[in-house]
């Protein structure tokens, strides 16, 4: 009985996923093939071969709106509103997945350890993304802030290494560490512990200096102008 049920489920899934893949292929040909080639084998100097990149990469790039590329090839893709609907994304992801490569990575922030995440984030991520995930600079690129990154997107980026980001596979950042990093992004980066009041961007002395000059300096100069006299004309 159970085997029959499983067989029925199997039959239902195949056409479903096949339909998704075929729809995905259509969308791909429409919107992606100009840079990635009709067969997704890539166009030299324009767009990479997508065989072997897997659902993992496709899901990342499409959900963060980095693909379709809005800038010139070679420039840094930026996060935007996704160009496709949820169904469209699933379809394209299924199609790219069918070309081989890793699935969408599993990640469970709640199974991670926040302190381990803080440590791992400092070691692997803070150099580019800044310790509070506010984004930063490397010569040639601007590692983005992580305000909108979902745990899955964090995991995908860590594994894929988009644009000029290093790619860390599970031998270097294992599942537990990945969970912890995602937890840190969710619970610290995206909910900054601003015990001291207005966080002014969580990037340290630059906005602090602006407040010291414009707010404190401005108010105190105003005060002395009230107290003191002005020059005779």
């Amino acid at each position: 009985m159970r085997r029959a049920l499983a067989f029925v489920m199997f039959l239902l899934v195949i056409p479903g996923s096949a339909a998704a893949q075929s729809r995905g292929r259509d969308l791909f040909v429409q919107g992606c093939s100009s840079c990635h080639g009709f067969g997704a084998h890539g166009v030299p100097g324009v767009g990479p071969d997508l065989h072997g990149v897997g659902e993992e990469a496709a899901d990342f790039y499409l959900r963060t709106g980095r693909m379709p590329l809005d800038v010139a090839t070679g420039e840094q893709p930026l996060r935007e509103k996704p160009a496709y609907s949820e169904r469209g994304i699933r379809a394209i992801v299924a199609y790219i997945g069918s070309l081989g490569g890793p699935r969408v990575p599993k990640v469970e922030p709640d199974a991670g350890n926040l302190s381990q995440g803080q440590r791992a984030f400092t070691t692997y991520c803070a150099g580019c993304h800044q310790i509070m995930g506010e984004g930063g600079v490397v010569t040639g690129a601007a590692p983005p802030d992580l305000e909108q990154a979902t745990p899955t997107q964090v995991a995908e980026a860590v594994r894929v290494g988009p644009y000029v980001m290093p790619a860390f596979d599970s031998r270097e950042i294992d599942q537990r560490t990945l969970n912890s990093i995602a937890l840190y992004v969710r619970d610290v980066v995206q909910k900054p512990p601003n015990r001291g009041g207005w966080g002014i961007g969580n990037i340290g002395p630059v906005p602090e200096g602006m407040i010291a000059w414009l707010l404190a300096g401005g108010v105190l100069v105003l005060v002395v102008r009230v107290i003191g006299e002005r020059m005779e004309r």
Binding site: A126, P143, R195
Partner: peptide, 24 residues
């Protein structure tokens, strides 16, 4: 207005660094 939230930076180790580090 928060200033120098050292808990966010973490403790110092010579082999670590963060982007966006500025002096006062």
């Amino acid at each position: 207005v928060q200033i120098n939230p050292v808990w966010q930076w973490g403790p110092f180790e010579p082999s670590q660094s963060t982007n966006g580090a500025q002096p006062d």
